[in-house]
Amino acid sequence: MKETLKVINKLRKQGVITDYAIGGGIAAIYYIEPILTYDLDVFVILPGVRESKVIDMAPLYERLQKNGYSWQKEHLMIEGVPAQFIPADELETEAIQNAIDIDYEGVKTRVFSVEYLIAILTRAGRPKDIEKVKRLLEQASVNKRKLRSILAQYGLLDSYKKLNPI
């Protein structure tokens, strides 16, 4: 994964992506005990996306393919890891802007903070997302005030309360 992260950092340095943060199962694993997952979800802010709602993933895909990384179903295989690049919406953009910097075997990377991760998983709402939310609440150190504020801002308080009735 170290090499995969180096490739993603290079994309940011080259301006192919403006910023990024890791989300999904791998971000959850950062906070909780290891769970089975297969892909690396990379949430990205693309250049020029603030001005327009139209996005173009082609420059990102072309750069990776030019560097020899190929598609395997819906993933781009980067140094042995199936990665999925997800253009960030409003909540995810804010999550990227508030992501935490971590060090992975000497490589700097960014991971969603636990509060934003819970909000994004709550919104997704699939059984596997709900399971992750429950584990995050049990095993991670969550700033409840911050979480409540994010959930309220994005109209997710009711969904969250349904998941955690007690």
Binding site: M1, I26, I29, I32, E33, P34, Y38, Y104, Q139
Partner: peptide, 21 residues
């Protein structure tokens, strides 16, 4: 036990993930 697993270093957790896969 679960909280101990959760507090493992991230690279160690990724190694466990690969073993799970």
């Amino acid at each position: 036990f679960h909280s101990c697993q959760a507090s493992l270093p991230f690279p160690e957790k990724i190694r466990i993930l690969v073993k799970l896969q």
